[in-house]
Design a binder for these strands. Structure first.
Length: 681
DNA sequence: ATAATAACGAGA
DNA sequence: CTCGTTATTATC
């Protein structure tokens, strides 16, 4: 750690004596570079990308050395850099450009994004790795497999794994698949929205795409929603790439291991990065491919300001680096559909014949309304068709997966008679029931919907959606006394289940892998998912159903999926016909009609009434901006700003500027700005 | 946080 | 009009 000895005698460096520095402060009005002099002694070590400390307004603050330049436009006297924290240029120039673009899109600051993009330094690790001959690969290149994570090592192929005997396995199951691999191998930049077949071993496909890219000498970034998916992808990459050619990045790693793997990428020792959302910023040199799996999962949304979404980070990255991009999932998000419809990406889908060979048989059966009144009785929620499917699978000595929603979903309001979700006549937001006796009101704009009548059937009667019971496992256990019952949920997630007859009750996202696939998959309490007070409730339901249904065996091997829901509603139709693309197109069309994201851009502003008023008085919003609210949000209030998609960047700029003025004035009531906030209750 | 600077007001 | 005190604002 360098330190200047005699400040009075310091001389600026001969060449490029000015360092442009991003100070690491979360203040919007300081979101620009500040110029400092580079002491001659550090002329060669103060390189762009390194961490520095500078005296800023009297105090020592951390900063990023962004650039070395010949002169400064600053009219005043420049201060010297105070310290070089480390000679390691941890901030890749391309990552810096990416971080700037992400900050701009999300109305945030560069410093905030850099905090997400670059892990904290670990001095000992830096030293140990630098000592390695050639300064290259550390002892544990960090193939993530190398990091033992207790209790989580399911085999790669376990989860709905591919049937090795399948004649049209691998990417050739998709007509455009081989061309995709060729394009990656040739160093071209294809962009695709991939609808994975049911039963697809997506980790193997992603690993193959990564291998094709890496073999062509270019880098790869693959992002998955959670640690369980990462374990699967890690194993697949180890198989496809061989040892030491990739690293897995996850929050669960300790600071040392995290930094070690980060350095392996930054120094170019490893070219393939896989991980959860923060890995979207991994400092992979010359990326040839970025990919995100299951982009509809809300785990891809970062929890820290400025709340960027991994899909958006990766797409921005693909755009900046002019590299290939792959957005994959069993289901398709409205955002992915938008990529297809704008022509930014191509569809990568199987033909119907292949789909028929691979898909389970899917049937929808309405729950008996008479029996459904008693939500505690699992048997009441199991129509005979579901009952029969489970029995048949168990008789064939195959496991049965039962998916039930998690408790605690917010009840929203829908029509008592036809169950169409009730929406605000003014802004199309969801209606909610007041806590104590008042009127039904919009959760977005707070308008009271007094004379509400269902647009579908004209009924004036409303009902709150009921959430299913949790006792499903016990109930089923009683119904099938000889069969072992396993549960997998938020508290205890099973990685995989043994082959053989068993009942597996799981909440969405916690479905264990079943080698050979499930004989039957039952999807229960579907109304609870469909009528959630969330703009994305239906899309999310389709995503979760498809993720569970994809674990079933193909129909020709007896695999059957029963969804206990009205077969007429579009989300159920999408599952029955296994048509993620068609459903996403419909969903996006609806959102266009209603002015919802991603067709429009929405930003939520949260703060005290005074703070919001002040903020909005300050902001010069674009012409098309529409204000909705305020509505109560916990102790504070929330407003939504809606603009046409094309005005998204202008809106972000305006909000960032307003935040800047307020932070400069030390405004007492902070306002939280969230672009593309997922929950728009 | 702190330092420079603008703004202000009381007393000559 | 000047000095001393206090708000304001920029921070290399």
């Amino acid at each position: 750690m360098a330190r200047t000895a005699e400040p009075a005698r310091r001389q600026p460096a001969d060449v490029l004596p000015v360092a442009r520095v991003c100070v690491d402060l979360p203040l919007a009005h300081l979101d620009r570079p500040f110029d400092y002099l580079v002491p001659a002694a550090w002329a060669d070590t103060a390189v762009p990308g390194t961490r520095v400390k500078v005296r800023f307004a009297g105090q020592l603050v951390d900063g990023w050395l962004l650039d070395r330049v010949a002169s400064s436009a600053h009219p005043g006297r420049l201060a010297y850099l105070d310290r070089l924290v480390s000679p390691e240029p941890v901030l890749d120039p391309a990552v810096r450009a990416l971080a700037r673009a992400v900050a701009d899109r999300y109305a945030g600051t560069l410093a905030d994004v850099l905090r997400l993009a670059v892990p904290p330094r670990h001095a000992r690790v830096e030293k140990e790795a630098a000592a390695t001959p050639g300064g290259a690969a550390p002892a544990t290149p960090g193939g993530a497999g190398a990091a033992p994570e207790p209790g989580s090592a399911p085999a790669a192929a376990a989860r709905g794994g591919p049937r090795p005997t399948d004649p049209d396995g691998g990417w050739s199951a998709y007509p455009a698949g081989p061309a995709l691999l060729r394009a990656l191998a040739d160093g071209r930049a294809p962009r695709a929205v991939w609808s994975a077949l049911p039963g697809e071993s997506w980790p193997d496909r992603l690993a193959e795409a990564a291998a094709a890219t890496a073999d062509a000498g270019r880098g790869v970034v693959l992002v998955v929603p959670d640690a369980r998916d990462l374990d699967l992808l890690d194993a697949a990459c180890a198989a496809a790439l061989g040892p030491g050619r990739h690293v897995a990045l996850t929050a669960a790693l300790g600071p040392a291991e995290r930094y070690r793997r980060f350095l392996a990428l930054r120094r170019g020792a490893v070219r393939v990065a896989i991980g959860t959302r923060a890995a979207a910023f991994a400092p992979v040199a010359d990326p040839g491919l970025v990919a995100v799996w299951d982009d509809g999962d809300d785990l891809h949304a970062e929890q820290r300001a400025p709340y960027p979404h991994a899909r958006e980070v990766l797409l921005t990255r693909a755009q900046l680096a002019d590299c290939a991009a792959l957005v994959g999932g069993y289901a398709r998000s409205a955002e992915a559909q938008l990529l297809v419809e704008t022509g930014w990406a191509r569809e990568l889908v199987a033909d119907r014949a292949t789909l028929r060979r691979r898909a389970p048989r899917v049937e929808a059966i309405g729950a008996d309304p008479q029996l459904a009144r008693d939500p505690a009785a699992a048997t009441a929620r199991l129509p005979s068709l579901a009952w029969d499917a489970a029995r048949a699978a168990l008789r064939a000595d195959a496991p049965v997966l039962v998916q039930v929603p998690r408790r605690g979903y917010l009840p929203s309001v829908s029509c008592q008679d036809c169950r169409t979700p009730a929406r605000c006549p003014h802004c199309q937001g969801p209606l909610g029931l007041p806590a104590a006796g008042g009127h039904t009101a919009c959760r977005w704009c707070a308008r009271v919907a007094a004379g509400y009548a269902c647009p579908a059937c004209g009924s004036r009667r409303l009902r709150a959606a009921v959430v299913g019971a949790r006792r499903t496992a016990e109930e089923l256990g009683r119904a099938f006394p000889d069969v072992p019952v396993r549960t997998s949920g938020r508290d205890e997630i099973l990685g995989a289940v043994d082959p053989g007859a068993a009942l597996v009750v799981a909440t969405p996202g916690a479905e264990p892998a079943a080698p050979g696939g499930y004989g039957a998959v039952l999807l229960l309490d579907t109304w609870a998912m469909l009528t959630r007070a969330d703009l994305r409730a239906a899309e999310e339901a389709v995503r979760r159903w498809m993720a569970a249904a994809a674990l079933a065996r193909p129909a020709r091997d007896g695999g059957q999926v029963v969804v206990v829901a009205d077969a007429q509603v579009p989300p159920v139709q999408a599952l029955v016909r296994w048509d993620p693309g068609g459903y996403a197109a419909r969903e996006l069309a609806d959102r266009r009609e209603l002015g919802f994201p991603p067709a429009a851009r929405m930003v939520s502003l949260t703060g005290t009434p005074a703070g919001l008023a002040e903020f909005l008085a300050q902001a010069r919003l674009p012409g098309s901006a529409e204000l909705l609210g305020p509505v109560p949000a916990g102790a504070a209030e929330r407003m939504l700003v809606r603009v046409r998609r094309a005005e998204g960047p202008a809106l972000a700029a305006a909000l960032h500027a307003a935040a800047g003025v307020r932070s400069a004035h030390k405004a007492p009531h902070p306002v939280r700005v969230q672009v593309d906030a997922l929950e728009l209750l």
